[in-house]
Simulated assay, not measured.
Amino acid sequence: MFKGLGGIGDMSKMMKAAKDMQDRMQQMQADMDKITVTGESGAGLVKATATAKGELTSLDIDPSIFQPSEKEVVEDLILAAIKDAQRKAQDKMQSEMSRITQELGLPADMKLPF
């Protein structure tokens, strides 16, 4: 009856898919604040814990490394643990983004808005 209006249903599907994606992205962002990763250096002598968004939440340093002559080594270990935690947080974020794009049937290499 309305031959020229066949695309309206497709537009409705696209709008629903966009809303679903937006809802999932918001939920994922909230979840990333709750997920933590731990980076280590010096065979576990220094551990840095961060949220999956990369916010550092704690630092654990084994007391055996506190010697004045080892100041630079300790600083390097702390920096390495923080960088490891941040890298793991970034990997986790990308993994979650990839999972969501697959669930929504989007191309794996599609860049989402973060």
Rank of each mutant, 00 (worst) to 15 (best):
P68M: 06
M25T: 00
T36A: 08
L79R: 14
L59W: 03
Q94N: 15
M110L: 15
T36K: 07
K47T: 03
G105W: 13
Q22R: 11
G44I: 04
G7I: 07
M15E: 04
I82F: 06
K34P: 07
M28K: 08
T57Y: 00
T38I: 12
L59A: 10
E75G: 06
M1A: 14
A80I: 01
L104M: 15
D23C: 04
K16F: 10
D20L: 09
M97L: 13
K92H: 12
V37E: 00
M97G: 08
P107E: 07
S12W: 14
T38E: 10
S95T: 15
A89N: 07
K19D: 12
G7C: 02
F2K: 13
L77M: 14
D33V: 02
M32K: 05
K47Y: 01
D20S: 07
G4S: 15
M11S: 09
V74S: 05
L112Y: 05
D31N: 01
E40D: 10
P107K: 09
K3Y: 01
G39W: 06
L56W: 04
A81I: 00
M25Y: 10
M21A: 15
D20F: 00
V37Q: 02
L106D: 08
K3D: 14
G105Q: 14
E103S: 05
K16A: 15
E40C: 01
K34Y: 01
G6D: 09
R99L: 13
I65P: 06
D10P: 02
S12D: 05
